[in-house]
Design a protein around this nucleic acid. Structure first.
Length: 576
DNA sequence: GCCGTTTTCGGCCCGACTGTTTTCAGTCG
């Protein structure tokens, strides 16, 4: 709204920076405001809330008081004031590709256009081109943008974009062959975000080949429309609706370009600030110092020049990674190969699609040493779960299977349903005999905060429940998190030794990166599982690991990097 | 609106592409 009103762009950017910093905080902004004392609903002293908020980078006096007002009253007078000035529909118009704040403001003020429908009508009737600086092409662009907006889908799961990116790379290599020196994806995919908005590729090649490479890119079989096509970059829409950009550059620019296009934007701004402090300017091609130009063929050289070690892409969110790098305190991030076992899998005993043996053999083929079979308890009606009778039959099958397996162990587990009232649907006598017991909620997910928190906390206090599976219940782009008070759950986890799981299922990634980092700060361990219902779904551990890496997790933070004999000592049921 | 190992005032990351222009503004990433 400030943008549309023509406010000083640096002021607008200050709000963006503050919003970005809050989004990437390692805890809830409310917790910062409260000054670390989550038990009190408000800061002890009125003034300290503002002071606490100001510790956030990019939050100064003005934004801190507005946030304080928002947290205290649930409303912000300044926001309401702006809302009264700018018609809501103008903000919709801002979402049209190629319409920015300047254009939206002129459409509103000069043509009185305040809805998408009015904009479409005006463009169709040739009214838009009457504005100074707008012509037929601008008008056509707006109509195309409106069409794109109406069929626009949300961000996609990384698990669909990653294989697509691999396919694009393979096709480019096939088409251009030796002309391509290096090719990679960059952007949010390289940072391994859970969802991806658009896809960025970088190609290095001799300048003589640049035009051919861009041409080949725009002609790939899955390209539907070409939006931009210049001398160094092209931007297309693929048949799956994804926007895909490709940038071509000379090999000597590779290091700076890869850093630049991997981002995040805010990370880039911070490292360019660092470069400036050291007397350089940094862009996507080079370091500049007066007339001198310094090129970097690798990312390592770029960071080295800034006095930093290489920073893994998953950490590049301007969330303290630069300070940590400078202090030599970057985490040694967990890797897929560190995992020794998987503590949440399902079989045909409940809603899985494969037998326990098929799951076990697939896991072993992937290099794991053990899995826990954690079928649903019968309380979750839709999955035809196991009850106290059937689970004993399942144990007999597991015992027999373990005799046949070499160098691999199947553990007896359960994913126990925590009923809406907090009760459990399996006798304690059964739970006591398991190797590991997870508990989770699948029903009554809309309970208010107090109720669902009490429900989960009650389960956490049960002596035989080792971990809470997918604690927040989110389904990415589909279902919001439950109202569970995670700060309280973490506190109870510290007290009881109950673990909070990281579910690696690609649509869950639950806990997410922010919560994982919080766990680590509290000194809590976790387990990272596939939640596989089919042998193919062990693949999700790959995405789960990257999610954990985004949460700064090291191997030591994840218990199933241990052999089972060691791991079992950490489970609550085996502790005294 | 934010910020400070030059600065409490005066800066604020930087470049590609497009369209409408006779040298640049707007948008995007």
């Amino acid at each position: 709204m400030l943008d549309v009103l023509g406010e000083n762009s640096f002021k607008v950017n200050a709000y963006r920076r503050a919003a970005d910093a809050i989004q990437h905080l390692d805890q809830d902004v409310r917790a910062v405001w409260q000054g670390g004392d989550a038990a009190s609903p408000e800061p002890v002293e009125a003034a300290s809330g503002v002071k606490n908020l100001r510790t956030i980078a990019g939050v100064g006096e003005a934004i801190a008081s507005k946030l304080d007002e928002l947290l205290r009253t649930g409303e912000m007078g300044y926001y309401r004031e702006l809302s009264e000035q700018v018609p809501a529909g103008v903000l919709d118009i801002l979402k049209v590709p190629d319409v920015g704040p300047k254009t939206a403001a002129r459409l509103w003020r000069e043509l009185n256009i305040t809805t998408l429908d009015q904009l479409r009508a005006a463009a169709e009737q040739g009214q838009v081109r009457q504005l100074k600086g707008m012509g037929e092409k601008s008008e056509a662009k707006i109509l195309a943008g409106l069409a794109a907006l109406s069929r626009k889908t949300n961000r996609r799961l990384i698990s669909t974009v990653y294989p697509f990116a691999q396919a694009v790379i393979a096709q480019m290599q096939e088409t251009c062959g030796s002309a391509i020196h290096q090719i990679t994806y960059a952007g949010s995919l390289r940072r391994m975000r859970a969802t991806i908005g658009d896809l960025d590729f970088l190609v290095s090649a001799d300048a003589a080949h640049h035009a051919d490479i861009l041409e080949a890119f725009t002609k790939l079989p899955r390209v539907e429309t070409v939006n931009d096509h210049g001398g160094t970059k092209a931007s297309v829409i693929a048949d799956n609706g994804l926007q895909v950009d490709l940038r071509v550059l000379e090999p000597k620019h590779w290091g700076c370009a890869l850093v630049y296009f991997t981002g995040s934007k805010q990370h880039n701004i911070e490292i360019r600030g660092l470069a400036q402090e050291q007397g350089y300017t940094l862009n996507e091609y080079r370091f500049g110092q007066n007339e001198r130009e310094l090129f970097c063929e690798t990312e390592e050289e770029v960071y080295q020049k800034l006095g930093l070690p290489w920073i893994p892409p998953e950490l590049r969110e301007a969330a303290g990674e630069i300070e940590a790098a400078r202090a030599g305190a970057l985490p040694r991030l967990i890797e897929l190969g560190d995992l020794k076992g998987d503590l949440q899998t399902h079989s045909t005993w409940s809603d899985g699609q494969m037998t326990i043996e098929q799951m076990a053999r697939a896991a072993q083929a992937r290099g794991l040493k053990y899995i826990a079979v954690t079928d649903h308890s019968s309380g979750l009606g839709i999955t035809r779960g196991v009850d106290a009778t059937r689970i004993k039959e399942q144990w007999a099958e597991i015992d027999a299977l373990n005799k046949r397996l070499r160098g691999f162990k199947v553990l007896k587990g359960l994913e126990l349903e925590i009923r809406a009232d907090g009760s459990l649907d399996m006798p304690d006598e059964i739970l006591a005999q398991l190797d590991i017991c997870l508990a989770s909620t699948h029903t009554a997910q809309k309970q208010p905060k107090e109720k669902i928190t009490a429900r989960v906390v009650k389960a956490m206090r049960h002596p035989h429940i080792d971990a809470i599976a997918h604690p927040t219940g989110r389904l990415i782009e589909e279902r919001e998190e439950t109202a569970l008070d995670l700060a309280e759950a973490m506190r109870v986890a510290q007290e009881t030794g109950t673990l909070l799981e990281v579910d690696g299922a690609v649509e869950r990634l639950d806990l997410d990166e922010v919560h994982i980092r919080r766990l680590k700060q509290l000194g809590l361990k976790t387990i990272l599982d596939s939640d596989a219902h089919h042998a193919d779904q062990f693949e999700t551990l790959f995405y789960g690991i990257h999610n954990a890496r985004r949460g700064w997790a090291e191997a030591g933070d994840v218990l199933n990097t241990l052999e089972w004999a060691q791991l079992k000592k950490h489970l609550k049921r085996n502790r005294r």
